[in-house]
């Protein structure tokens, strides 16, 4: 649930998603769920020459399992908060 909450704080921000098939998609994050599936609006494909599939696409849904990386603005991330949340999550997991 940690990263679900993390992504919720990024809604309405611009992110760049790199998929496992090497496509890179920049767009505004509109929605996320517990599986870290994503919905992006107003997308541009960064490697559109190699992958012209999304030229006509404005908004899309990305299955979480296909994501390799998500790049975001460092200013949108509260690092101290994230580190503390990870520590707490790790304590919880260790108990299980």
């Amino acid at each position: 649930m940690l990263f679900f909450s993390f992504f919720k704080t990024l809604v309405d921000q611009e992110v760049t998603v790199e998929l496992k098939n090497d496509m890179e998609i920049k767009g505004t994050l509109k929605s996320v769920d517990q599986f870290l599936n994503l919905k992006l609006d107003n997308i541009t494909c960064l490697n559109s020459a190699q992958y012209p599939y999304l030229n006509a696409v404005k908004n899309l849904f990305i299955r979480g399992s296909t994501v390799r990386y998500v790049h975001m603005n460092p200013n949108s991330v509260d690092c101290t908060l994230l580190q503390d949340a990870s520590r707490r999550e790790a304590m919880v997991q260790a108990g299980k």
């Binding site: 992504f7 870290l36 990386y69 998500v70 603005n73 949108s76």
Partner: peptide, 9 residues
């Protein structure tokens, strides 16, 4: 990358 999420799988 200044800030990146890496998927665990």
């Amino acid at each position: 990358s200044e800030m990146v999420f890496v998927r665990g799988d």
